[in-house]
Simulated assay, not measured.
Amino acid sequence: MHAKLMIGAISIAMSASLQPAAAAPDWQMVAKTLGKSGTEMPDGVYRVGLPRTDLKVSLDGVAVKPGFALGGWVAFEPMGNKVMVMGDIVLTQDEVNPVIKKLEESGIEITALHNHLLRAEPMTLYMHVLGQGDPVTLAAALHAGLALSKTPMVNATPAATQPQIAFDTAAVEQAIGRKGKANGGIYQFTIARAETITDGGMTVPASMGSAIGINFQPTGGDKAAITGDFVLIASEVNPVLRALRENGIEVTALHSHMLDEQPRLFFMHFWANDDAVKLARGLKAALDKMNLANS
């Protein structure tokens, strides 16, 4: 290489190496602007829980706990010094359009709006949102939208002890073939798909809503109510639907959550209230139809 060209190439390389790395988002400022703090997850996502603890919802005589089916959230994934934010906001019917209007005016996209359950009183709807850009600006937009709902924005104090789970959790885990965890009186399973999910060129990790979620809420004796969502590719939708129905589990919704994800995903919500181990076996029959990451 000519001496001048070599010197030029070395200068460019040195200049690039001396460029400062993009600063990580200031999560404390995001929390202050949003009005509620969250947790930085192991995958680097900053996730803020937005459970509707203000609502008293019942379904088929079961008082629905917030962590069972009313657990909204927003999550911020770093992309350089900017972020992608996704969320699932739980709203009552009268809150939907005021929140949509405010978020849309602020540059937040609405990517889905739907039910999760049937027969629940009062009815709740679930609004999925997407934004990209400056994290504090996005937090301000989300704060403005959430302010038009009654979503509690107080940071809850963790309970000193977990409520007892009144069914055999070890037998349920054995039936499903996965480990769960107790969380506020709910027994939860989070299961990742085998594929890498992307949206707009960004990886969508489990904490951004790409994982299967299964919740058990004790309802007395060895019984439990179950709900959650299966994350499916198109070829899995009807095999999973059949497996659930054959095992006495009601399918309550089927829809999208995102707009540009790859591979294309469908989210199936479900409900049943029966013997917990029996339901776990039914859920396992459905999971066996899916391409899941190893446990």
Rank of each mutant, 00 (worst) to 15 (best):
G8M: 11
T161A: 14
A286V: 01
R242L: 12
N238S: 05
G200Y: 08
G67D: 09
G145E: 06
G38V: 11
F68C: 06
A140E: 15
F189I: 06
A140W: 09
G220T: 10
L113M: 13
L148D: 00
A3N: 06
V129S: 02
S37W: 12
A141E: 01
E261L: 13
T111Y: 08
Q19S: 04
H269V: 07
I226T: 15
G72E: 04
I100L: 14
I197S: 00
V129I: 15
L91Q: 07
G107A: 06
K82H: 06
I7K: 05
N273S: 13
A139Y: 09
I197T: 07
M1D: 02
N294V: 14
G201W: 08
Q262G: 06
K36M: 13
A140G: 15
M84R: 13
N115Q: 05
V96N: 10
S58I: 07
F167K: 11
L232A: 04
H2K: 09
H116C: 00
M123Y: 14
A192P: 02
V231N: 03
Q174R: 11
G72F: 06
E105A: 14
L292F: 00
S15C: 11
H255V: 06
R47T: 10
Q132Y: 14
T92M: 13
V99D: 01
L59Q: 14
D199R: 13
D168P: 05
N238K: 04
K102H: 02
L18V: 12
E261R: 10
P98M: 07
K223Q: 09
N238C: 06
R119Y: 09
L146M: 10
N294S: 11
H143D: 07
D275M: 07
K278A: 07
G221V: 04
N294K: 15
L113E: 07
Q93A: 10
L265D: 08
A75R: 00
A276Y: 11
M84N: 10
A194M: 05
V45Y: 00
G177K: 00
K82I: 05
D88V: 12
N247W: 07
I186V: 15
T219A: 01
Q164T: 13
H255R: 11
T169V: 09
A243H: 07
G180V: 02
S235P: 00
E95P: 04
M86L: 08
P51K: 05
F230C: 03
I12V: 15
M79G: 06
H116M: 00
F270A: 14
L18T: 10
T161I: 05
N238I: 03
T124F: 05
L91A: 15
V30Q: 03
D26V: 03
P158Q: 12
H128C: 14
I108S: 12
P263I: 01
I191K: 00
D229W: 04
H116F: 11
T53S: 12
A192L: 08
A156E: 13
E95N: 04
G87D: 08
V90H: 00
M258K: 10
Q93G: 01
T124A: 04
A276R: 10
L138F: 11
P51E: 02
M84V: 08
K289R: 14
N97R: 11
I191A: 02
E95V: 01
D134L: 11
R264G: 13
G228T: 06
Y46F: 15
R242C: 01
P66T: 02
I110V: 12
L117G: 03
I176V: 15
K56S: 13
A159W: 06
A112F: 11
F68N: 09
P163A: 00
